[in-house]
Design a protein around this nucleic acid. Sequence first.
DNA 1: CGGGACGTTGACGCCCGTCAAGACATGTGG
DNA 2: CCACATGTCTTGACGGGCGTCAACGTCCCG
Lengths: 242, 242
Amino acid sequence: MPTATEQKSISTLSQRLGALDDKVVSRLNEISHSVSSLAGRSIIIEGDPAISVFSLQHGIASVFKLLPDGRRQITGFLYPGDFLGVTFNMDAEYGYGAEAVTHCTLRAWPRPALEHLFDEAPGLRRLFLAKIADELTEAQDRMLMLGHRSIEERVAAFLLTMARRQAGATGIRIEIVDIPMRWADIADYLGTTAETVSRTLSAFRDRGIVRTGKRGEIGILNWPALEAHAAGVKAQEGEINR
Amino acid sequence: MPTATEQKSISTLSQRLGALDDKVVSRLNEISHSVSSLAGRSIIIEGDPAISVFSLQHGIASVFKLLPDGRRQITGFLYPGDFLGVTFNMDAEYGYGAEAVTHCTLRAWPRPALEHLFDEAPGLRRLFLAKIADELTEAQDRMLMLGHRSIEERVAAFLLTMARRQAGATGIRIEIVDIPMRWADIADYLGTTAETVSRTLSAFRDRGIVRTGKRGEIGILNWPALEAHAAGVKAQEGEINR
DNA sequence: CGGGACGTTGACGCCCGTCAAGACATGTGG
DNA sequence: CCACATGTCTTGACGGGCGTCAACGTCCCG
């Protein structure tokens, strides 16, 4: 049962743009410029005037909201092809912050020029609309996670999402999953703490569900158990891999 | 500091439609029909084919996602002027369930007819786009709530949202706030349980922050304390009302 | 090689979920 | 109008999940 989150992740920018007129694509390239950001550096700051819309080319970024006391909720991780800084507010301020998880390269469009292009190319506007709609269903899924699922369920679901994303459309069960973000980022994404993320992964390891190796990598040994956890079922963890 | 949630709630359907062409409005009325739903009854069911788009006329409805074991996350409460069942998926299935909290009357449009009207009236499409964008920022705010705020903060913020909604654009501090939903609904909205909602309100009452009276009504006695709680500040609860 | 960032593990405690009983309101049939 | 059933809210008791604080281990990069 793939979630909306994963379905979204499959479509990259190039795939999406494939549906557009060639002329529009070339115009898009004309009015954009390229920027890059080192891991850990801020890309956009909540409340700043929204002068640009970005498309992530390479790397992974996080989008987050902050509380005055420093608590942080990562509302999503962005992958190549995802858009950043799309806002439809009249006041035109970014409604959230974003920073690079890994080294990122991005394509930046000045908002006025992009909006002008919207009027010329209805397909482009529709593309952004579909993107926003995807994000909304994803956000609703995440609310369910944060509100009513145990930490083990959240971590299991997160691992599966990462694994499926790397599998792409192949459907193959990846053995070694890359986890480029820090535990603290995962924690802020799942609504918990870095310690609890670590403890949960250790528990999975002790139960033979995952294998921990190099930094930034996790091996999945028992898919059914992980999927059962993610689904919220009290799992029987007998068999390994199918 | 009003949140995106409240800003959204201010604009009702009629206000929004005011920006549209008269001809479009009359066409909208032509192709719609009216339906109503008793309190507690289901309006749309997750996974059903999305044959209609609704606009809430009177009453309050809840939108939710379900887990197989029955756990429920209410992703939002809807008020007159809000839309329901807007989906941009190709598969055209409702991505969530909805039910009436109070007795509701709704206006229903067949999706094909509405989408046809979209092509005629770009302003209408933009209106729905703005609506979706509002919902997205609202959803992101809610993720912050669910992930990183204590129960007291969530309940305080909920009460303030309800109070401000009833105040409308006046900015007046309402004394008695109507809370038409059941505690269990509030709990599923805030990611907690009905017992904890009750306990939290009792704690607020014991500290002189709110006053409990008739069913479905709560009096707010100490605004600063409530606002401090909602902001996540460890409050000094000395003064009453300003 | 040394320092800093990150991850792991332990100890502790409290918030809050769960179970249960009782209070109260509302509706229904007699 | 009353007896009863039903749904909802309140309050208590209890326990566990997980947040917090702290110390240690590990990796990376200068």
